[in-house]
């Protein structure tokens, strides 16, 4: 196959990536800027790490980050369990009552505007509290439930598409060799689809970590997440600490994505070879 692309396509790719990365890189550069004006480079005192130090002493941001971590971890774990179950249901049982509804319910949250999901969840929690007294007030629990509802849709899609290409003969072979169904699941199926489950977990974590709208609707007093704090700060104008936060986020995400991608690329090669 010929891999040469036209000048036009190459230019488009170049400009496209510039568009994607210039804003991000500008945040990284200005996180080392000494000036409080953020975008005016103070060449006398820069580069500096002073905003990094100041971020690490910002109680409000650190508290919010801790809330975000808690919500994101519980959400990711819960979403993976629910999403894997739903993915199995859709991939393995071609015909069951309610398959269509389950399919629709798992696709809809992917595209549903967040304001709608957030509003409807809040109204549910209010109604439930009136009706049965649970959840008493809103906070981390209600937020996590909200996040799980849309994150599990993503996990379902990932797990389902992995299972569609899964050679069921592997499970049959294990059973043929004497393994009971439950054992087959844990010894054969789970290890093989593990990369998909890991991607699902990471994605669910990120979605939750990033979410502003649904959190705002479903959180209560004293349980502000990081995006909520960032949003209120940004509304008041730019702040050098946000640049630092963005740079740290970018660093962590890049490291993680590159590591996971490398690992997955190796796994994919194994999967591909053994399927052939």
């Amino acid at each position: 196959m010929n891999y040469r692309s036209s000048i036009f396509v190459l230019t488009c790719i170049g400009l496209g990536f510039a568009f994607l990365y210039i804003p991000i890189l500008s945040m990284v550069v200005f996180s080392f800027n000494a000036s409080r004006l953020v975008t005016v480079w103070d060449s006398a005192n820069s580069p500096t790490l002073k905003w990094y130090a100041s971020l690490l002493h910002n109680e409000e941001i650190l508290d919010a980050a801790w809330v975000s971590v808690k919500v994101a971890v519980i959400n990711a774990t819960g979403s993976v369990i629910l999403g894997t179950l739903a993915g199995f249901g859709l991939a393995r049982f071609r015909q069951f009552r309610g398959r269509f509804t389950l399919n629709a319910m798992t696709t809809a949250p992917l595209v549903m505007p967040e304001v709608i999901t957030g509003l409807s969840l809040l109204l549910l929690f209010v109604a439930l509290e009136q009706l049965i007294g649970w959840p008493a007030g809103r906070g981390i629990t209600t937020m996590t439930i909200g996040h799980m509802t849309f994150s599990m849709a993503y996990v379902t899609v990932i797990v389902n598409s992995r299972l569609v290409s899964f050679d069921t003969a592997l499970e049959e072979a294990a059973m043929d060799l004497g393994a009971r169904p439950l054992k087959v699941f844990f010894v054969i199926t789970l290890p093989i689809i593990f990369p998909a489950i890991l991607s699902g977990w990471l994605l669910a974590f990120t979605l939750s970590w990033d979410d502003l709208v649904i959190s705002s609707f479903t959180s209560g007093p004293g349980s502000s997440t990081l995006p909520m704090v960032v949003f209120s700060k940004v509304r008041l104008g730019v702040s050098p600490e946000i640049n630092v936060l963005a740079t740290i986020t970018l660093g962590v995400v890049t490291t993680m994505i590159v590591a996971v991608s490398l690992w997955m690329a190796r796994r994919a090669k194994i999967d591909k070879a053994s399927a052939g």
Binding site: P23, F30, V230, L245, A246
Partner: peptide, 18 residues
């Protein structure tokens, strides 16, 4: 994919600076 994994809020914020 990488920008998609970093926070949307922070990426929108970047445009304010620009």
């Amino acid at each position: 994919i990488l920008p998609f994994w970093t926070s949307l809020l922070l990426r929108v914020y970047a445009w304010i600076g620009l």
